[in-house]
Design a protein around this nucleic acid. Structure first.
Lengths: 339, 339
DNA sequence: CTGTTAGCGCGTTCAA
DNA sequence: TTGAACGCGCTAACAG
C-alpha cells in the first residue's frame, strides 16, 4: 500500500502524533524535529489520507459546488473563479452538475454531500424543499443567483437596475415597440427572470408605452431558445423595433434569427443582451455587463470566512456593480412614413 | 452530531454490519430485514460517511477531474458530459482547475488527489514528470486531449484529418495564400497544435503552394489572441485571402479583427475554425466539428470500465469522428487583376 | 442469514 | 516537547 503516517514516524524516529503535529504546523514541536519530519515526509512522498483525517477531525476540507450546467459560459466562469479561491485556501471542490430534473432529484434525495463537505456553494436556486435539505447539512451555504434566501449568503447583482439601464437605453433611442426575450422560470425556480420582467414593465410604463403581450417570448436561456423567441416576435402583427434579451446567449440566438430573416441589426432591429458574455464583443452586442467571475470569487471568499469565524452571525448579502456596455447592435429606430 | 450506522442498527434492532450489508445491497440479508432497515434508514435520514467507508474499504467512489480552464467552452463541455456519466454511476467528481502555472505546480507537488480518488480524468496534457506523478497514484487514468501516453486511456480525434479537411476546403475554393492561426504549445504541452500545423503544411505542399512563414501567427487559443494574430497576418507584405484557425475561439477573434479592418468575410477573407463551438453557428463560422461532449462521456465510460475490470489489460485509445461544417465564412477568393 | 471482532489512518486527548 | 491510548464510522473476516 501507500505510505502512512506510521511509516513516516518510524523513518523519522518519532511517534505518529509528533508527525501529525509537525506536518500541520501545530505548536509543541521543536523546530529541529519538525524540519527533520518534513524532510522525511517529502522524501517518502507522504500525503495524509483525507478520509482518515476527516474521520478523526470532523473536517473534510472540501467544498461542494452545485451547478445547473457546467458547460454554460456563465456557470463555468463562476465556477472557475470560485474554484481558484477554494483551492488557494487548501480546499478541494466536489462538483455536482444537476442539469436534468432526474440528476437534480437524485442529488436532493440522496444528498451525497452529507458528511462530505464543510460548506456548499449553490449556483442554482433551490426551491423551498431543496433549501431545507441543504440547511439540514448544517454547514455554511452560499449562492450567486437569485434573491435573498434564509440561511444563504447571497452574492448577486441588482437585476432591476441592470434591466432598467438596458430598456431605458432603448427608450432613449426613440424605440416604442420594445420586445423582451425572457429566460424561463419554470423548473429552475429562478427569481431572476421575474425581477427583470418587472423592471422592463416599469420602464415601459414610465415612458408611457403601453405593454403589448405579443412582444414577450420565452427564450429558455439558450441560443436556440433565443432564436425561436425572436422568430415568434417577428411574427407579431406589429413586430418590435428593439428587443431586450435577458441573457447574451438568447440575444445571440435573436441575432441569428434576424439574419435568417434578412433583417439588419441595428438598422431594422436593435438588440440588447445581459451578462457581457466573452463573445459579446465578437458579435458587437450591446449588453448589461455583470462581474461574473467576480461573483464566484466573492461568494467563495464569504464562504471561507464563515468557515473561519463560525459565530459571525447572519450570512450576508452582497450586490456587485453592473454597467451598460454600448456596442453595435443598438441604434435609433428607422424613420418610417406616417403610421 | 448526525445519525450514524449504529443509530440505524439500534433503531432497527440489528447489528451495524447487517445495516451496512443491507444498505449496500449485498447478499446475505433476508428481504424482510433489508426492507425494514431501508425504511428505518430513510426515516432517520441516514447517509453513510464517505470518509469512514472509504477508510474501511479502500474505495473512495470519487473521480478526480483535472482541467486547465473550466470556464472555457471546450473544457466545460467535456467536463459536463463526463460528470453526468460519473454521477449516474454513483461516483462523485473532485474538480481541479489548474489554469495558472502556480496552481498547476501546487497540484502536482502536493498531489491532493492521493488517497482521495479511484481514478483520474485529465483534460490537460501532463508533461513527462506530471504523467509520472499521476501514474504513481496507482489508479486508472484517462485523457481527452493530445496523443498516446503510457498508462493513459486516450479519447481523441484525428487532428491531421480534421486539419486536412479544413485546409483542403480552402485550397479547393481556389485560395493560394492561406494563413494559419495556431494555438501555442508552450507551457501546456499540447501536441495538438503541432499535429495540426504538420497537416497544414502537408496540404499546402500537396497543392504545390509554397509555405510562407509570414502567414502563421500564434493565437494562444483565445479570442483576444486570435484577434491579435489576425491583425499580424493582415500586416504581412502579401496578406492571406483565407485563414485556418486552430480553434473556433481564435477564429472568432479573427472575425473581429477583420471587421475592425473593414474587411468583409468571406468576400475579402475566408475563415475556417476548429471545434464547432456552440456559437459558431451564430456567427456563421465554417469549422471542423468534433464531438466535444462525446469525448468526455466516452472517456468517463472507459474509466468506469477499467474500474470494474481491473485486469482488462492495456488502456485503450479511441478516435472519434470529425466532419467539416460549411457555413458562411468561406468562399472563393475575389478575382483580382493580374498579379 | 446474522452478530462479533478487528482494523482502515488519522487527530486528539492525557500523562509523562 | 513528546508518546501512548483511544475513537472517528464504517467494512471485512470470521463465527455462529
Amino acid at each position: 500500500m501507500s505510505v502512512s503516517i506510521t511509516d513516516v514516524a518510524r523513518a523519522a524516529g518519532v511517534s505518529a502524533s509528533t508527525v501529525s503535529r509537525a506536518l500541520r504546523g501545530q505548536p509543541g514541536v521543536s523546530g529541529e524535529v519538525a524540519a527533520q519530519i518534513t524532510a522525511v515526509a517529502a522524501r517518502l512522498g507522504y500525503t495524509a489520507s483525507r478520509s482518515a483525517s476527516s474521520l478523526a477531525s470532523g473536517r473534510t476540507f472540501t467544498i461542494g459546488v452545485v451547478v445547473p450546467y457546467v458547460g454554460r459560459w456563465f456557470f463555468g466562469t463562476v465556477l472557475d473563479a470560485a474554484e481558484h479561491v477554494f483551492s488557494a485556501a487548501g480546499y478541494d471542490v466536489l462538483l455536482y452538475n444537476l442539469g436534468s430534473p432526474e440528476t437534480r432529484k437524485r442529488f436532493f434525495t440522496k444528498m451525497p454531500v452529507r458528511k462530505r463537505v464543510d460548506a456548499v456553494l449553490s449556483l442554482l436556486i433551490p426551491d423551498e424543499e431543496e433549501s431545507a435539505a441543504l440547511r439540514s447539512l448544517g454547514v455554511p451555504l452560499a449562492t450567486t443567483v437569485g434573491g435573498a434566501r434564509p440561511g444563504f449568503t447571497v452574492v448577486g447583482i441588482d437585476d432591476r437596475a441592470g434591466t432598467e439601464s438596458a430598456v431605458r437605453h432603448l427608450v432613449n433611442l426613440g424605440h416604442r415597440r420594445i420586445g423582451m426575450i425572457s429566460g424561463s422560470s419554470g423548473p429552475q425556480h429562478w427569481t431572476t427572470p421575474i425581477a427583470r420582467r418587472q423592471a422592463y414593465l416599469e420602464v415601459l410604463a414610465d415612458a408611457g408605452i403601453e405593454h403589448d403581450p405579443a412582444l414577450e417570448a420565452d427564450g429558455d436561456y439558450t441560443v436556440e431558445g433565443g432564436e425561436r423567441a425572436m422568430t415568434e416576435l417577428l411574427a407579431a402583427a406589429r413586430p418590435p423595433t428593439a428587443v431586450f434579451a435577458q441573457s447574451d446567449e438568447m440575444a445571440m440566438g435573436a441575432l441569428r434569427a434576424l439574419r435568417r430573416h434578412r433583417l439588419r441589426v441595428p438598422d431594422d432591429v436593435s438588440v440588447v443582451g445581459f451578462d457581457d458574455h466573452e463573445l459579446a464583443d465578437v458579435v458587437g452586442l450591446t449588453t448589461v455587463a455583470q462581474p461574473v467571475a467576480g461573483q464566484g470569487a466573492e461568494a467563495a471568499r464569504l464562504l471561507l470566512r464563515q468557515l473561519d469565524e463560525p459565530d459571525a452571525g447572519q450570512p450576508g448579502q452582497v450586490r456587485m456593480p453592473i454597467r451598460l456596455v454600448l456596442r453595435e447592435t443598438t441604434a435609433p429606430p428607422r424613420p418610417r412614413g406616417p403610421q
